[in-house]
Simulated assay, not measured.
Amino acid sequence: MLFARLSLIALVTTLVSTVAGLKVISPGGSTLWWVANSDNTLIWDCSDKTHDQFNVVIANSNPSVLVAPLPIIPTLYNYVCSKLILATQLNVAAATGYTIQLTNIFNNTDIYASSEPFEIKPVGSVYPDPSATPGHGGSSGTPSSTSGSSKPSSTTSGGNGSKSGGSKNTLSALGAFAAIVVGVITA
């Protein structure tokens, strides 16, 4: 009986930790790339409040492209939701296999979230289509407007909130489920 209760607690903990946490929305994947030596926008789902602040680091799976993860922005606050990365802040080669990591402000090896692998395309390439960005037109999070460049305009608008409560509702449901499980365990 005790083993069954502990297994149930482990399952609930896994579910909550899987749903909870920061998530990099853009860049990532084959449809959300950045352009080398250009202003690019980073967007994350700021509806989760697990981490109030984090560092932004770029990494590459190929050590001949980037030997070690490179810090881009120290101490960025979660509530900001998006950040314009200026061309002067990021000096890396056009290549595939990059990831953006949101890390602990005191330890960049403690990674809170990582983007899907993405490409940094050569200078002069076009930016992704605005419709490729999750969150554009009503998905999770509401990225704040970025200023200073109109190039990556596809990533500066957020949704109307029609789906923005999704992760919060899921977390609420999991919290209620956890309360029931704790009640069963203590009974």
Rank of each mutant, 00 (worst) to 15 (best):
A93G: 07
S26F: 00
K168Y: 08
L90Q: 06
S167H: 02
S64D: 10
I185Y: 00
I9T: 05
N108P: 08
Y77M: 11
T13H: 04
P74W: 05
I111W: 00
N91T: 15
L22P: 04
K151W: 11
L174N: 04
N104I: 04
D129Q: 06
Y77L: 13
P27T: 05
G138P: 04
P130C: 04
K83E: 11
I180A: 13
P69W: 09
V16D: 01
V16C: 04
P27L: 06
T109K: 04
A93Q: 12
T88M: 04
L8R: 08
D110K: 12
S47R: 03
T133R: 15
T186D: 06
I72G: 01
G148P: 11
Y112N: 09
A87L: 03
G165M: 08
H136I: 03
T155E: 10
V24I: 14
N55P: 10
P69E: 09
S30M: 15
G137N: 11
V67N: 14
I58Y: 00
V56F: 08
T142A: 14
V19W: 05
G141I: 07
I100L: 12
W44S: 07
T155D: 11
V126A: 15
A36H: 09
K168E: 13
G21L: 04
S82E: 04
S144K: 12
W44M: 08
T50Q: 14
G137T: 04
T103R: 07
T170W: 06
K168I: 14
L90A: 08
T75S: 15
S172Q: 10
L42T: 03
D45Q: 02
V67H: 13
Y98D: 06
C81F: 06
T142Q: 15
Q89N: 08
T186M: 14
T13Q: 03
A4T: 12
S172W: 08
K23Q: 13
R5V: 13
A95G: 07
T155Y: 11
Y127G: 00
G175M: 05
S147P: 07
S7W: 10
S114T: 11
Q101F: 03
P134V: 07
I85N: 03
A94E: 03
G183Y: 05
L32A: 06
T142P: 08
S145G: 12
S144R: 11
S154D: 12
V57L: 00
K23R: 14
A132F: 02
V19G: 02
S125E: 01
S114W: 00
S144E: 09
A93R: 09
S140W: 07
T41A: 09
N169V: 07
S144C: 05
N108V: 10
T50P: 01
G29A: 02
V65S: 06
S140L: 15
Q101A: 02
N55V: 11
S149T: 09
S38H: 02
T41H: 01
G161V: 01
S26M: 04
K151M: 11
S125Q: 01
P117H: 08
N78F: 01
S30T: 15
H136L: 09
S144Y: 05
N40E: 01
V182K: 00
A94T: 01
G158H: 01
E119H: 09
S150T: 15
I73V: 15
P130S: 07
S38L: 00
G124V: 08
S17E: 01
T142K: 14
L2M: 11
L66P: 02
K121W: 05
L22K: 00
I25N: 02
P63M: 01
G141T: 07
